[in-house]
């Protein structure tokens, strides 16, 4: 029986899922093909609908 979880892709979706699982006390392995996590959202300055800063 394995308790860990694998997440493929470290954009906003993969990051959020990792954080939630971490909060539940589970061990997550996050695999990202680029050198940093963040995905497309990291390229955005501000985001709709609030125009808040993305990072």
């Amino acid at each position: 029986m394995n308790k860990d979880i694998l997440i493929i892709g470290g954009g906003i979706a993969g990051m959020q899922a990792s954080l939630d699982l971490g909060d539940m006390g589970l061990q997550v392995h996050l695999v990202e093909k680029l050198t940093c996590i963040g995905g497309k959202m990291a390229q955005l300055d501000k985001t709709f609908p609030t125009n808040d800063c993305a990072i």
Binding site: K3, I5, G9, G11, I12, A13, G14, M15, Q16, A17, S18, D20, L21, M24, L26, M41, T47, F48, P49
Partner: peptide, 28 residues
């Protein structure tokens, strides 16, 4: 979750991510 299943914006990606996390935790 997120755009891997089809085009969605950030709020929707985040909501899906939280549900996918719950679904995965359920399995564990």
């Amino acid at each position: 979750c997120g755009c891997a299943q089809g085009p969605v914006d950030i709020p929707e990606s985040v909501a899906q991510a939280s549900s996918a996390a719950s679904r995965a935790a359920e399995v564990i």
